[in-house]
Design a protein around this nucleic acid. Sequence first.
RNA 1: GGGGUGAUAGCUCAAUGGUAGAGCAGAAGCCUUUUAAGCUUUUGGUUCUGGGUUCGAAUCCCAGUCGCCCCA
Length: 500
Amino acid sequence: MSDIPADISHDQYAVRLKKLQDMRAAGFDPFRASTAQTHFSADAMKLHTEGQDNAVAVKVAGRLVVIRDMGKSQFVKILDQQGQIQLYLKKDVVGEEAYVAFKKLDLGDIIGAEGTLFKTKTGEITVRVEKYTLVAKALRPLPEKWHGLTDMEQVYRQRYLDLIVNEESRARLMMRSRIVTSIRATLANRQFLEVETPVLEGVAGGAAARPFVTHHNALGTDFYLRIALELRLKRLLVGGYDRVYEIGRIFRNEGVSRKHNPEFTMLEVYQAYSDFRGMMDLIKAIFTDLCRDVIGSFEIKHAASGQLINFAGDWREARYFDLIDEAVGFKLSALRSTPDYAAKATGAAQQLGLEIHAGWQPFEIVNEIFSKKIEPTLIQPTFVTHLPKELCPLAKLNQQDAGLIDVFELCIGGMEVAPAYSEQNDPFVQREMFEAQVGEDQQKMDTDFLLALEHGMPPAGGMGVGIDRLCILLTGAESIRDVILFPSLRPGSAGAGDKQ
RNA sequence: GGGGUGAUAGCUCAAUGGUAGAGCAGAAGCCUUUUAAGCUUUUGGUUCUGGGUUCGAAUCCCAGUCGCCCCA
């Protein structure tokens, strides 16, 4: 005898498996069947005309997520990319045999159905099903229908379940897709070329971050996963591609938190014969299109503060050191070139309750004030300009003040959303900046990039946009993990598979 | 890396150190326009893992695994 127990009614997996085996024994295998999908759910529902029931025929398909069985008829709902649509099955219409078989379907099964659209007496556009086909049997039950899936570990490890049962997750992650599509359209309209550059790099440059290391067997060499896109894209400016961008995954071997995932997505854009002012126009154009095409409003509610963020009109522009002076309550910036600077900056930072580490350079102390005390208060879109040069070694120095650089950092909702520079194209200055940086940062110098600069790079504006943070902002998500389909977790089991 | 917190039925959650329960899902039955459909009956547990304390542990202690929060 088999080892299947006589009563399997409590074991949903066993019940479903038996149904599958029975179907196969009767000559029907759902996994070998298919169905046509002429319309998505929402598109189908739009075809119904008031007062004209059963006039339009559609073929829809999706996962069974609601079953309301009333004996000789039933209302069910299926879920597809656009959402749910209700189906109505009547024994009289589909016939005895098909109806009996339909009653054996389970929540989670994937079916195709064809029929005509009508409006129920409660006002819901519904498909009056004439024929249906089971095209995938779900052997495992769905999470609870009302509360959905709340166990965060399962939400991340089995995101598909989250997407099936948690409508907010479906909508939020779909919005991310639309955000990226909108950005690509904005850039395409302005004749930017989308390019792809290496993830595996011999030198991980373009930012200060600890890289992941991997090994290539055939070449017998280590590679670093890229930590920025910048140095490759600028080589393309040298090559004569005047407007380029990449939306790509970058990898930083650092902490994981609500705002950090080890791999995340950056947009980097470079435009020859432009500068950081040109990038201001570009980022505003990107936001204007996003507001119009994706958000549907020029105002969004900032989740953390409840304030309305307004993207219309002119955006605020503020000098970095004006903000610092305002935060510390005196003209700290006037002491920038004096020997007192470090001590005064430390004092001011401690006054504000910040912890200052012993080895920090003055610019690091001041930037601690900026990132802890100023950035979180910049809720409305704000271009912070005239940053100290140590913060971005790849930017052009300011003509009036060589300690500053021609850049902005766009802050919105208390987060840095997009830094942009007038790009440094002087190979000598660039080499000096690299050398200064390499010393403290154990980061190897990308001499190949310097060689490219020696061939001549046009003046250019460049900008980076953290796509994940942009999505947090625009979707009101609480954590970066809520806008990444599969966030990084410790390897572990999703829990399935231990049943057999 | 440090601190806090959590893990109980497929899912969402209960349970003074003393027989582990409910809702949904599942099973059986009724119901031909339902909306978390409704009604009747009912199955289902290695209480994360491993130790310890105790007459007795889901509960207390220790260690570990994984998640979440805060900090670095």
